[in-house]
């Protein structure tokens, strides 16, 4: 490839950085709070709730994310032709254009969020359970409410403890966004493949690789900064 062609590829991939970052950003935005909720449900004292949540986590972690994306995406065309689905829901589904970017993104986000929430939930649960019982007892004997205890005493300590493991997940996520190409969502990996075919060259793939590498690097720097910031106590 000529220098000019490489420049063009870089330009195109830069443009498709936006959909990649959309999958990344929205997944984080939704899966972190959902993960916290799932962690709390998993620790719920009502046994059936805890069991159901465990089952959900088991399935999400036990099956490939790519498969989950495909299932969510193709569920729509399948369900809208199924007689088992109530008419009202079928009507709604039949209005969806599965080739629309917005639908692709929604389906991807549903699968990614459900999957990542399961992983985050286990990290958060580990963090919450690692806080000594004495912290709860101290807050209790100071007459703090349960909400105050959680948000003022427990959560800040949990955050510090889960940062390293969460960093791992977040860095994995930026690379997992490439799985979105399985439903033809136009993001960096899909575009790099198209450019590869167009120029009959591996170069676009290497450039895409550099993009992911650079983003992982930025995330690593951000997380080591956060870890340092939280280092003010032990």
């Amino acid at each position: 490839m000529t220098g000019e062609e490489i420049g063009k590829v870089v330009e195109i991939l830069l443009e498709y950085l936006v959909p990649t970052l959309k999958v990344f950003g929205y997944t984080l935005l939704f899966s972190v709070p959902l993960g916290m909720v799932v962690a709390l449900l998993r620790m719920c004292r009502i046994k059936p709730v805890s069991w159901l949540t465990s089952l959900y986590i088991l399935i999400m972690r036990g099956t490939p994310l790519m498969l989950q994306v495909i299932v969510v995406y193709y569920a729509v065309p399948y369900l809208k032709n199924s007689q088992a689905v109530p008419g009202l829901l079928r009507n709604f589904l039949s209005q969806i254009d599965i080739r629309a970017d917005s639908f692709m993104l929604s389906a991807i986000l549903v699968a990614f969020t459900l999957n990542y929430a399961a992983y985050f939930a286990e990290i958060f649960r580990g963090g919450i359970e690692s806080i000594p019982k004495g912290q709860y007892e101290a807050a209790f004997s100071l007459s703090m409410t349960k909400t105050q205890t959680f948000f003022r005493i427990i959560l800040p300590q949990v955050i510090k403890r889960v940062v390293p493991a969460s960093a791992n997940e977040v860095i994995t996520l930026i690379k997992d966004t490439s799985l979105a190409n399985v439903v033809s969502y136009a993001e960096i990996t899909l575009k790099a493949r198209q450019q590869m075919q167009l120029y009959s060259s591996l170069m676009p793939l290497f450039i895409a690789g550099l993009f992911y590498f650079a983003m992982s690097l930025v995330l690593t720097v951000i997380f080591s900064f956060i870890e340092k910031k939280l280092d003010y106590y032990k």
Partner: peptide, 12 residues
């Protein structure tokens, strides 16, 4: 008021 054997101060 209660004072614990292991203090249980809030470390953060």
């Amino acid at each position: 008021g209660l004072v614990f054997q292991n203090f249980n101060l809030f470390p953060h």
